[in-house]
């Protein structure tokens, strides 16, 4: 029961984050919303894992968290430098 409440809250917040991603207006608002969606997806995975009595979902959650971090940083780096292999210490 309490897991269902938590899942509902996380889903509601996911809806709000997606609203922000659609409304924009800048690309950074969308990246921020995308990052929040990632965090909420991890929470949802954890809660649903408990809801269905299969906490193995947590492994997927941890993996998703690591990917979310790298993904967000990659998108930002691409916007900033237009190049994923940019290295500030290299002369160009």
């Amino acid at each position: 029961m309490m897991f269902a409440v938590a899942a509902a809250a996380v889903l509601l917040t996911l809806g709000l984050a997606v609203t922000r991603a659609i409304r924009g207006p800048t690309v950074f608002d969308r990246v921020l919303a995308g990052n929040s969606v990632g965090t909420l997806a991890i929470l949802l995975l954890a809660v649903v894992g408990f809801l269905t009595g299969r906490p193995e979902f947590l492994d997927i959650g941890i993996t998703y968290g690591l990917l979310n971090l790298i993904g967000t940083l990659a998108v930002l780096k691409f916007f900033r430098h237009g190049d994923l292999a940019y290295d500030a210490s290299e002369p160009r």
Binding site: V5, A6, A8, A9, V10, L12, T13, L14, G15, L16, A17, T19, R20, R23, L32, A33, S36, L40, L43
Partner: peptide
């Protein structure tokens, strides 16, 4: 936790 999660979402909008 649910409460603060939703609050964050509301703030985001």
């Amino acid at each position: 936790g649910s409460f603060f999660t939703v609050v964050g979402g509301i703030g985001l909008v």
